[in-house]
Design a protein around this nucleic acid. Structure first.
Lengths: 330, 330
DNA sequence: TTGAAAGCGGTACCAG
DNA sequence: CTGGTACCGCTTTCAA
């Protein structure tokens, strides 16, 4: 069962007596080949088990019908389900996706971009690490159609599709404030990530509106990788800060925070109020419930649609598309 | 910012005066090109921003340095983290991965295989749907190196890497029996999936060993897609079966079961004993804890290693590799 | 409606 | 050490 010879157009040509050319176009159902011939050729192709060689066709046509999706961490179910939705949307457009994991590291992100480009992908969906802009400049230099997803650069002209994260932050904090909380802890992602900045801004906005002062010490900026929010909440506990509610940057971080609080049996924190983001419970049914901010539009489909427009040259000026969000109650 | 012209070997050749051939080999650091020339060419390539075209090189060399990973659902964090680990292992071998989602549907699985083959992937890692063997026969006919992961066919000679699922089922059931439970509910995946059969067999083995009779009505076979286990447990509740413990086919299903029990406030079930599989909490920290069966070997790395052996022709006779498992207590 | 020929951008192989 | 040349399998263009 070694590496078998592939069936090529040539093989079909020899079997049928037509030329490679005719075979190629017959299999693409071009109407300048007679119906009868097309049918005949199609049958023969099937019989021989012809599959086609996208490397060859990519080389000649310059099109691969592939888009690259570059994200921080597919093991995160939020990204995971986004990727799955993107795969479905892409498939409907006749595209397959290839996935790269950056581990939220700029260097890996760069490698991913280069690898994708080398593979001649027709377009790229990128959830950028955002430590700096180099990789975006690289993308622009290469001239691949691309769109940022989930995060964007305020001072760069690129296509992007993101949540209205300011509103998201506002919703989270004002919900807790509405419950009577005045000591709300914020555990959020790095400020170089746009959602990091924006959600925090929303958090502040909500405080201002409700006339609650923000205690800067209650704002904790952490990594968004696993373990970081647990560390952060432990530190807060050590410092003995008197919080009664938490805004967590993602549901996953919220779970981790609850886990940590529970495991350290600080009974006064066991019935803490918490709000997360992503509404992961929409996808996966977990037995622990808390309010979560979610996007009420179809991110994946919109994202793929816009990218398709770019790929087909039906879109010129870059624009950031903000998606609306809401608070989902338990 | 339209589709820019790619920098090719030819461009570098013209700039430097060498032939395309020399450029190609210099960039691959072949030692039949003088060090000085190599350095010169490398610098020029960098200056021009040369990236290379894997479609072209794949066409000629027959190698893409790509492996396809075909799984049921990447939004499932267990698969997600497996895929991430595979990506890392593959990368260390100089390979990138492309991912396909089957949604546990045979037809999609077939399309994924054909698409991967068409892309000339060097190898395929497949977690098979197992409704029938057609797709495996297809893979064998195509002659691509492939390995099954997580599931295998008892009556087919293929490479596979799976858990010792019989032991896994035994561990789960005997743990609960050891706690004194005699009415243990089993909610598991379809029997055409090898882990479905094997874990159930383990479940029965444990009962036999402990001298507990198996009530066939307590064995519920469901889909492994989201929502199915919730349905199953509801049905059990409706029937009023007197279970005091549950073996759930995956942690995700266990969560869903707990969620459903909680939401229906059947107080006699709120402190039910449950055991899951996958030990998802190893990856993601959740505030709800129960014992889980996990694999104590490095699945992803082993899987990629074996596939690499196959790709490089260093492995002939197919074999199933069983990985050891253990019970992780809360 | 079909055929012939020229590439796409690399790599393999042999010559010098 | 470097150059020449064929060729991977398909698509494109032009001719018949």
């Amino acid at each position: 069962m070694g590496p078998k010879k592939r069936v090529t157009l040539k093989d079909i040509a020899e079997k049928t007596g037509y030329t490679i050319n005719t075979i190629s176009r017959a299999l693409k159902d071009k109407n300048d080949i007679s119906l009868k011939t097309r049918k005949h050729i199609r049958e023969m192709a099937k019989e021989l088990g012809y599959v086609g060689d996208s490397a060859a066709s990519a080389l000649r046509s310059g099109k691969t019908k592939t888009i690259a999706v570059i994200v921080g961490d597919i093991s995160n179910p939020f990204f995971g389900s986004q990727v799955r939705d993107i795969e479905l949307a892409a498939r409907e457009n006749g595209y397959t996706i290839i996935i790269y994991n950056t581990g939220e590291q700029t260097e890996w992100e760069k490698r991913a971009i280069l690898s994708a480009y080398s593979r001649r992908v027709d377009g790229i969906i990128l959830c950028p690490v955002q430590e700096n802009k180099d990789n975006i400049l690289l993308l622009q230099k290469l001239g691949v159609p691309f769109i940022l997803a989930g995060r964007y650069f305020k001072d760069m002209e690129t296509d992007a599709i993101v949540w209205n994260d300011i509103k998201a932050g506002e919703l989270a904090a004002s919900h807790l404030a509405g419950l009577g909380h005045v000591n709300i802890l914020y555990i959020g992602g790095p400020l170089y990530i746009s959602s990091g900045t924006d959600r925090l801004r929303g958090f502040r906005n909500a405080h201002r509106e409700k006339g609650i002062p923000v205690n800067e010490n209650m704002i904790r900026i952490t990594n968004i990788t696993a373990g970081a929010s647990g560390e952060a909440i432990l530190q807060v506990l050590r410092e003995g800060l008197p919080f009664t509610a938490v805004v967590a940057f993602s549901d996953l971080m919220a779970y981790e925070i609850l886990y940590t609080l529970e495991n350290h049996a600080y009974d006064r924190y066991t019935h803490i109020s918490i709000v997360g983001f992503d509404d992961i419970r929409e996808k996966i049914l977990f037995p622990v419930n808390f309010p979560s901010i979610r996007c009420i539009e179809d991110e994946a489909e919109t994202c793929v649609d816009i990218l398709m427009q770019k790929i087909h040259g039906r879109k010129n000026s870059p624009s950031v598309r903000f998606l609306d969000v809401e608070l989902r109650l338990p």
